[in-house]
Simulated scan of single mutants.
Amino acid sequence: MMCSIKKILATLFLIGFIGNTLKAQISPPGLGDANTALWTAFGVKRQLDSLGKKQALSYIAIGRKSSPDNDNLLSKQAILVINHEVYHSFAPHQQYSYALSYRRQPQYESSAPYEKESTEQEFRIYGRYAYTFDLGKKWKLKNTVRQEFRKFFAADFSKVEEDFQLRTRIKSQLTYNLSPTNNQKLALSAEALFSMSHLNDPDPQWTSFGYREMRIAAYYMFTIPHSPFTVDVGYMNDLIRDSRSIHHGGVHYLAADIIWNIPYHKN
């Protein structure tokens, strides 16, 4: 599995160096400790004004993952996500967005046979600020800061061990325009996540604010010819601090999403 993933990364990297708006892929969320994972999403992106400065992206997505003792990325249901985000490019190179999200995530036992023991719900709100640098005709560098508030519940809305969390995410993404044919692009990104949590158990308390994980990703993006759909396919490596998976190179994700782009229509 590791050899296959390395070949995929090498191929994507070489394509970028062989071969105008920035298309945002629907990046995978963290799915916890595992060896491999699969993330698939379907989104609808709408232009909200005639100038193309305001957009809304709504999507539904599912994730699956392996058990800690195998590499079968379809082994277990990992997450269901419903997300809605509004973007506003308010100045040259600058953009902000805000979003609401609902996530439903099964929890599994930490020892074999890793059976499901509960289901956790999450309600999330977040805001994001991004600044994009044009690095010549084909390169763009987008730096993003994202602040999240995450509230957790059990399936019956009772309390769980983690009450809520404040999380800060800092991301840099380098995009290369491969070809104007089908609007092909290659994106390489790195994102660091820092957080602090308020716990319900064993006693109400705050954890310290600190670094939790790093996510490194490579994506190939293109438009389906003669259609309103864009497709993003890629790989992500999630390096979770103090996890079992970090000793084996992190959690390895394969990801794909399709986005239906709807142009602005005046009412």
Rank of each mutant, 00 (worst) to 15 (best):
L80K: 06
K65Y: 08
R146P: 03
L57W: 01
Y102I: 02
D201Q: 11
E85R: 06
L48C: 05
L74K: 13
N83P: 03
Y96I: 12
G30R: 05
K151G: 05
K185V: 09
I26P: 01
L188S: 05
W139R: 13
D163R: 09
K266D: 14
T119R: 09
P113W: 02
L193K: 01
F17G: 15
Y131Q: 08
S227E: 02
G43D: 00
W39P: 13
F123S: 03
Y114T: 01
F17D: 14
Y131V: 15
I224P: 05
A99V: 02
N72R: 02
P28I: 01
L80H: 07
A41E: 03
H252T: 00
K138Q: 09
L12W: 08
I26L: 01
W206P: 13
D238K: 05
N261D: 07
L22W: 14
A41M: 02
P225Y: 04
F17C: 11
V145Q: 10
K76D: 14
Y211N: 04
L193V: 03
D163H: 10
Y220T: 01
D156G: 13
H198I: 11
S67Q: 09
L51W: 07
Y264E: 07
N182Y: 07
A218M: 02
K6V: 05
N200W: 06
D156C: 09
D156R: 13
I82K: 05
H252Y: 02
I216E: 00
I62Q: 14
S50A: 12
M196F: 14
Y59F: 10
K45G: 05
E120A: 08
Q77Y: 09
Y126W: 08
S89W: 08
N72S: 04
V231C: 05
I259W: 00
S208R: 13
